[in-house]
């Protein structure tokens, strides 16, 4: 003869068992779905990062190659400009030397004028002496006249040469001044080109190194994400423990249902069933919960390892 409480228990226990099994199934499915998604997420991130790192590596290689090529070309260009500068300096030095020689030539022309003047005086004295010699000096007078004429031509030539050398000297002075100003500007431009080239190559090199740094950061992020995902997956182990606890609970309720369904309630069998509960527990928290009457949930034991 069953009591009303027994009958109610017999009605409600199968329902509770079904609820428990439903919860177990749902958490199992949800945990599996989460694990699958997190695993895929981790794999997708890994693939994306690997692809980015691969592309970045390619770009770095191309940039390094370009940098090396540009470096060589720019330095070759600058070497050519410096060479041209040296050649201009040499030409300028030659112009200055030529300017110095025009001065010497001008002095030579002055000397020619002086000699012509003295020759002229000498020819005048010779003419006077020829006059004193009367008929005997007529031939000598003709020679003295010719010498004076030559002295005058020499004086005129020396004068013209001096004027020409003066003009050449002035022209060379002007050319030298302009060349000096141009060379100063060229040196300034060349120094600027050196500086700009150095700055550009340094910035280019820094950009390449920054790209390498960004690649390293990507790898770090990927590693951190993988670690986070691994920790999430490890945390999802709770499902296995709760599933086992619910399975034991469900099994215990089935046994209780069997005992309550007997024709005569066997109290001794019920006591044995109750006492045997603890022996069926597998987790530490089941045993702790069994002995405690407060509602706090004990923490699960962490993964201790025993080697045999």
């Amino acid at each position: 003869m069953t009591t009303p409480l027994q009958r109610m228990c017999l009605r409600v226990l199968p329902i509770w068992i079904r609820h428990i099994e439903s919860v177990r199934a749902q958490t199992e499915q949800a945990a599996q779905a989460l694990i699958t998604r997190f695993t895929r997420l981790s794999e997708t991130i890994d693939l994306a990062v690997e692809e980015l790192v691969r592309r970045s590596h390619e770009q770095r290689s191309q940039l390094s190659e370009l940098l090396g090529h540009s470096d060589a070309q720019l330095h070759e260009l600058l070497a050519g400009l410096h060479q041209a500068q040296h050649e201009r300096d040499a030409t300028f030095a030659e112009v200055l030397e030529l300017r110095g020689r025009t001065e010497a030539m001008r002095r030579t022309a002055q000397e020619v004028i002086t000699v012509a003047g003295q020759t002229k005086l000498l020819s005048l004295n010779a003419t006077i002496e020829a006059v004193h010699a009367a008929d005997y000096g007529r031939g000598f007078e003709v020679v003295a006249r010719e010498v004076r004429a030559l002295a005058l031509r020499a004086n005129s030539a020396g004068q013209r040469l001096g004027d020409e050398m003066q003009t050449v000297a002035q022209t060379l002075d002007t050319a030298a001044r302009q060349a000096d100003q141009r060379l100063a500007r060229d040196r300034e431009v060349l120094n600027g080109a050196d500086q700009i080239t150095h700055t550009l190559l340094s910035e280019f090199r820094a950009a390449t190194e920054a790209l390498a740094g960004a690649t390293g950061n990507l790898r770090d992020i990927s590693t951190r994400v993988r670690t986070e995902v691994a920790e999430v997956l490890v945390a999802l182990q709770f499902q296995d423990r709760t599933s086992q606890i619910l399975a034991h609970l469900s099994e215990s309720m089935e046994q209780l249902q069997t005992l309550l369904g007997a024709e005569a309630l066997d109290e001794l069998a019920l006591t044995r069933w109750f006492d045997a509960r603890e022996a069926t527990y597998t987790t530490a928290e089941q045993r702790i919960t069994h002995d405690r009457d407060d509602a706090q949930t004990p923490a699960a034991a962490d993964g201790e390892i025993t080697f045999f």
Binding site: A230, V234, A235, Q237, F238, D240, R241, A300, A301, D302, G303, E304, I305, T306, F307, F308
Partner: peptide
């Protein structure tokens, strides 16, 4: 050869 209690920590399991 060894007994690991769940939940396991990956480094510990990998070390084992």
């Amino acid at each position: 050869r060894a007994w690991v209690v769940k939940p396991f920590q990956p480094p510990q399991l990998l070390a084992a």
